[in-house]
Design a binder for these strands. Sequence first.
DNA 1: TTATATGCAAACGCTTTGCATCACG
DNA 2: CGTGATGCAAAGCGTTTGCATATAA
Lengths: 148, 148
Amino acid sequence: MSKPNALISALGGAGKRLTAARRAVAEAIAEQDGHFTAEDVLAASRSRRRVVGRATVFRSLELLADLHLVERVDLPSGDHAYVACEPDAHHHHVVCSTCGRSVEVGELGLGPILGRIEASTGFVIDSHRLEVFGQCPDCQADAQHRSA
Amino acid sequence: MSKPNALISALGGAGKRLTAARRAVAEAIAEQDGHFTAEDVLAASRSRRRVVGRATVFRSLELLADLHLVERVDLPSGDHAYVACEPDAHHHHVVCSTCGRSVEVGELGLGPILGRIEASTGFVIDSHRLEVFGQCPDCQADAQHRSA
DNA sequence: TTATATGCAAACGCTTTGCATCACG
DNA sequence: CGTGATGCAAAGCGTTTGCATATAA
């Protein structure tokens, strides 16, 4: 759905080689609309006739995750998936339980809550993950059509 | 560390059979101190000479998770683990990155944040997970001793 | 007695790794 | 050129399943 170039140029900027396989992975990710698994990327690369080895997909995904170009999310089912994301600020993902699309949201005031947790538990917090699941506006509309 | 009886009686209350295997799993969980994996439970049951089959451990864990007696947490590493927890109110876990112990915290004001997310994204939120990782007080102390 | 639960072992699916080859820079 | 990347296939690991047997209620 968006520009693979962003992924590709970011890759180059990190001193990583700009290989055909990585371009293919970037393209495959760019055409994903929502969260996706390694297998989805593999399938997308195959359907585009830019076949990439399974191992390379995993290696690329790991690399992109290190560069914060994609982020791993754990679905409620326990499955692992990835979402493309902006590398900049800290943010969280809101994932649609129906269609899998996700949007990013900022911190929205989580900081004070973490402060309260530190105060009440004595922990020093290193990291946190907030994963939110629900129905996106489109799927809400679809649900209404179906029931009406 | 705590009473397996709580798990056992809750099991009975749910119309489930109180079998030897389930007692063994409950005991194994009770002696876990922090988060644990299915393999940990299996190992604990073996060391106590109350051997339980691998499949039964997974089935029991699934059952206990359904009853909200344990909760599945996804560690930053991507591994799946479980923590024992109180079945009552909605809460989240704060997990120590060093020793794995976890404590429960309540909502602490997440509600308004979710409301803001709904407002800004148009999603209707079904569920959420907040996972917080850091150093517990004990591990902070240990770290100081070591560096001092 | 009868529906449930168990145990085993094999099947499974996702992910990683070893290693020889390839190609970006 | 040299190092890093690739691809294949096999290994690895956690998890699930089929099925005959055992057992709680």
